[in-house]
Design a protein around this nucleic acid. Sequence first.
DNA 1: ATTTATGCAAATCATTTGCACATAG
DNA 2: CTATGTGCAAATGATTTGCATAAAT
Lengths: 131, 131
Amino acid sequence: MKTRNTLQKNIILEQARRLHHPTAEEVYEAVFQVHPSISRATVYRNLKRLSEEGAISHVRLPDGADRFDSMTQKHYHIRCTECGRVFDVDMPYFSGLEDKIADKHGFDVNGHDITFVGLCPDCKIKKKRGQ
Amino acid sequence: MKTRNTLQKNIILEQARRLHHPTAEEVYEAVFQVHPSISRATVYRNLKRLSEEGAISHVRLPDGADRFDSMTQKHYHIRCTECGRVFDVDMPYFSGLEDKIADKHGFDVNGHDITFVGLCPDCKIKKKRGQ
DNA sequence: ATTTATGCAAATCATTTGCACATAG
DNA sequence: CTATGTGCAAATGATTTGCATAAAT
C-alpha cells in the first residue's frame, strides 16, 4: 500500500516535530487548534505511519502514554516522576550492549532501551517551595 | 493504614511467586483455580500492596501489561517480540549509571531500567519451522 | 467494635477498529 | 476512477475506583 500526502498528515507531522516528546493526545490538541475537524483516530493512525516511515520515532516508556520524538537516532530518555515529562538523555548509545547477553540466553537480541527516572529541575523547585 | 493478612493475599503472593514474570491477568487465572470467587480488583490491589511491601517487584515494561517478579533485587529484563514472554537478564546491574547523567540535566536521578527485546529460543525454532 | 479488605460493576485511560464517506493520485 | 485516508462511534485491554458487604484485628 502506498501512503498518501494528506493535509492532516502534514499538520500532524509539523506539530509532532514542534512539540517536545508529545503524547498522541498532546499532538491531537495542537492539531485541533489549526484543524478542529481532526479526529483522534487520524492522529493515532498518522503518528503510527510517520514512525513506520521514519519521519519521527515512537517512544514507548515503562509508564504512561507513548510519546513521539523528532530525534530519530537511537538515544535514551529520562522521565520526571512528578510531572511525567520526558527528556532526551545526553549519554552515548551502548551499541555493543546486545552482544554481551546474547550467548547466555539463546535469544536473538534486537535492541534495548534505557529509561531513567528522577525529579526534573522544575519539580525540584516546586517541591522545595511546597515545604 | 496497617495491612491485613487475608486468604486472598496469601494465595496471590503464592501464585505470583510460582509463575514466571506473570501479568496481573495470569495471576488472576492461577488464583481462580484454587479460589474461584476471587475478583480481578482484589488481584490488582494485592499485587500493588505486595510490591509496596517489598514481597515482589512490579515490572513495568515499555510494551504490554505490567508484570510481577519474585526477584526483588534490581536487574534487567528481556522481552520476546514474538510471544511477549519476559525473562531475567543475567548481566550485572549498572549501579553507577545515574551519576553519569545527573550533572548534565539538573535532574535528581533516582533509577533506571534497561529492557532488551529479541526473539526467544522457542520462537526462533517456531519461525524456522514455519518457513 | 472498628477498620481494612473483598467482590462487583462501572469508570477511566490509551489505543484500535469497523464502517460509510471523502479525497489524493 | 479506485485505492487510501478521514471522522465518528463503538470496541478493546489494562487498570482503577465507588460502594455495600465481609472478614481480620
